[in-house]
């Protein structure tokens, strides 16, 4: 088991290295760089920039140098915890994003937990009572949840909250808590704001989870080991929970890894609509302004999330399925 984790960990580091190269290359792909769009912006407002200042900046950031030199400068900085400077915000990238990435992870993490807690019982119920009223209801609700775009659901929720309760949903904190340190009132303030985005983010995923779990479970319940378990004299609920559910979870657990980054990148529009201080909108903005160190850092962190998520699901899978644990020897 330890060997398994160590091997996975090494593979993870190599993957991250490869991802960082690709991410950096993609950010560099559009013609020009931040300085060209900066000059264009200044020129459009009638300002003139001293060409020498531009030259200095270019040299300072190594913008004129070949790709591999720029990459090397960037990645050595990243390894030492220096993610570079944001051109647009004129501040260190790390300072800008750590709070936002934290908000993202917190929000998406809550959404994932809500998703599993809602989807597990409903999915099991829908499979065990196949074609019952409850199954049809969960199917209908599930498909509505899948079909309605998240941002639309967010808009509807905001509209209803305003017209019915006169409250505005949006943001994650009240103004007075925005910059405050974490404390009990701040946690409460966060929760009173966060329930709406968490609900919105969780709906589509919940629906998908219910469908997958139901299908997996229906397959597993036809397997002979379920009959064996029944033939032992176990009560039906115990048969279902101990045997087929356990196996039906495998494919779901293997997808936890993709869930984390999918939620972060999938929530951009919701974050914009609900004015959430998460990483998504900032990534979008940094890409349009060619703020390459900021964009690079966010993309790198997203891939770190993916890889960590995959590592987590690998470890979980190995824990619950001995065939994987021993097959990896």
């Amino acid at each position: 088991m330890v060997g398994f984790i160590v091997r996975r960990f090494i593979a993870m580091l190599l993957t991250l290295l490869a991802v960082s190269i690709v991410a950096f290359a993609i950010i560099q792909l559009p013609p020009g760089d931040f300085l060209t769009s900066y000059i264009a912006q200044l020129a459009s407002t009638g300002d003139q920039v001293d060409p020498r200042v531009i030259e200095n900046l270019r040299a300072q950031y190594g913008l004129g140098e070949p790709f591999y030199v720029q990459y090397w400068k960037w990645i050595t900085g990243v390894v030492q915890g220096n993610f570079g400077h944001s051109f647009e915000w004129k501040r260190p990238v790390w300072e800008l994003i750590w709070g936002r990435i934290g908000n993202s992870i917190l929000l998406e993490g809550l959404a994932v937990i809500v998703m599993w807690f809602v989807a597990l019982p409903i999915g099991i119920y829908a499979a065990v009572r196949k074609y019952s009223l409850g199954d049809y209801l969960s199917t209908i609700l599930g498909f509505i949840g899948l079909a309605v775009p998240n941002f639309l659901f967010a808009l509807i929720l905001m509209y209803l909250a305003y017209t019915w309760f006169g409250t505005t949903l949006g943001g994650l904190f009240s103004p007075e808590f925005e910059m405050a340190r974490w404390s009990l009132p701040r946690v409460w303030d966060f929760l009173s704001h966060a329930w709406a985005p968490v609900l919105v983010l969780a709906t589509a995923g919940t629906a998908e989870l219910i469908r997958i779990l139901r299908a997996n479970l229906l397959d597993e319940m036809k397997k002979p080991y379920v009959v064996t378990a029944r033939a032992k004299g176990l009560p039906e609920w115990k048969v279902i929970l101990k045997y087929p559910v356990r196996l039906a979870l495998n494919p779901l657990i293997s997808t936890i890894g993709w869930l984390l980054p999918a939620l972060v990148s999938g929530s951009v529009i919701v974050s914009v609509v609900m004015n959430l201080p998460t990483a998504g909108p900032m990534l979008l903005r940094s890409l349009t302004t060619q703020d390459m160190y900021l964009a690079g850092a966010i993309i790198l962190l997203l891939s770190v999330l993916t890889v960590i998520g995959t590592l987590i699901s690998d470890i979980l899978l190995a824990l619950i399925d001995p065939r994987i644990r021993y097959g990896a020897r």
Binding site: K223, P224, A229, G233, R246, L247, D321
Partner: peptide
């Protein structure tokens, strides 16, 4: 249920799939 497995028990054809793999 109190008869199953205690008074009358059963063995099946496929010993691979009839035992839980996990």
């Amino acid at each position: 249920r109190s008869i199953r497995g205690a008074e009358i028990s059963m063995i099946f054809q496929e010993p691979m799939t009839s035992l839980s793999p996990v």
